[in-house]
């Protein structure tokens, strides 16, 4: 369980994190998405107890990060964005050191390292010096470190940054597998990543949480930007009628067979959400009144990328802090 209530982080006059609240139940995976500088890293650092918060409250597995930091940190596996490691140590040595730091009992240490190394896929490089590892292995060493004490909460900052497509797939599968038993909070700026791995999505922009919910809930926020009309009859006439309607930005013609033609009618950005449906009705009625036959009216849905763009664009400029 990872909970944040009214989290605020101020750097002088700058608000880096502005009243962010969320709650991730046990066994769920939540993903922070947002443009660079949205405050993702800052928020995760606060959750991990590395940065102090201006106001608010964060609890990890029920332990207050401010009030009981040692217990909260004991319940946490954290992988910072840059995956900082000691290059002069061997992977096995490093994991032993980290397990020791996190209070894994001496007699359980070997098995804990073995388990974490196997899960993260670094068991074959335990004897290798970290300085000689490839980026992918370094990333996985960071993951093994986060897992070594088997903490209930995991915070992973951009776990797939800098990996190749195969490695990304592996890490995603690993994160998905962590879902049973661990509560995971991760961040990314790649949307397909949250779609692929997360139960809940938190959209952050300019330090504010602009949307949160399951994928379906976020998807419902998708605004329809266009409607496809499939019309039988004179295509020129149909195009002219649609183009003349109020609220229509442009009409694109496509998919013509015989006298059946599909028009993609894109709405003006200024058209309010609730009037999109009315405009659709009006267009359909106009086509029918002109003696044309309407075969299908299909409201196109925007991709998650469109929603993301829509949600994060409207807000004020990013504060410039966070992902540095």
């Amino acid at each position: 369980m990872i909970e944040a209530e009214h989290l605020v982080k101020r750097y002088g006059p700058k608000l880096a994190v502005d009243d962010v609240s969320f709650s991730i139940p046990k066994g769920k995976i939540a993903g922070f998405v947002g443009p660079n500088g949205a405050g993702k890293t800052t928020t995760l650092r606060i959750v991990a107890g590395f940065l102090g918060m201006t106001s608010g409250r964060v609890t990890l597995a029920g332990h207050d990060v401010e009030g009981d930091p040692l217990r909260a940190k004991r319940a946490l596996g954290y992988m910072p964005e840059t995956v900082p490691l000691y290059p002069e140590m061997r992977v096995g040595e490093y994991l032993a050191f980290r397990a020791d730091l996190k209070g894994v009992a001496r007699k359980e240490r070997a098995s804990a390292i073995e388990r974490a190394a196997r899960k993260a896929g670094v068991h074959d490089v335990l004897g290798q010096r970290i300085g000689t590892l490839s980026k992918g292995y370094r990333q996985r060493t960071g993951l093994a470190d986060a897992l070594v004490a088997d903490p209930p909460s995991l915070v992973l900052d951009e776990p797939t940054a800098g990996l190749d497509p195969n490695q990304i797939k592996e890490v995603r599968e690993l994160v998905r597998a962590l879902g049973d038993g661990h509560t995971v909070l991760l961040s990314t700026h790649i949307l397909s990543e949250v779609e692929a791995t997360c139960d809940a999505i938190l959209v952050l922009a300019g330090g504010k949480l602009v949307a949160q919910g399951t994928q379906e809930e976020i998807a419902r926020k998708r605004r329809s930007f266009s409607v496809d009309f499939t019309v039988r009859g004179d295509p020129e006439q149909a195009a002219a009628i649609l183009a003349a309607r109020e609220g229509v930005a442009r009409v694109r013609r496509g998919g013509e067979t015989d006298a059946i033609c599909t028009f993609r009618c894109t709405w003006r950005r200024t058209l309010p959400d609730e009037e999109v449906a009315l405009a659709t009705e009006a267009c359909t009625r106009a086509l029918l009144e002109a003696g044309l036959h309407v075969r299908a009216v299909h409201r196109t849905t925007s991709s998650l990328e469109d929603v993301f763009g829509e949600l994060t664009r409207a807000d004020d400029a990013p504060t410039g802090e966070g992902d540095a």
Binding site: R45, G49, F50, L70, K73, R74, P80, L101, K102
Partner: peptide, 14 residues
């Protein structure tokens, strides 16, 4: 400089 301080200070140490 290397950032390892972040990994160090987010473990249960005072």
């Amino acid at each position: 400089r290397s950032g390892t301080i972040e990994a160090l200070l987010t473990t249960p140490v005072s």
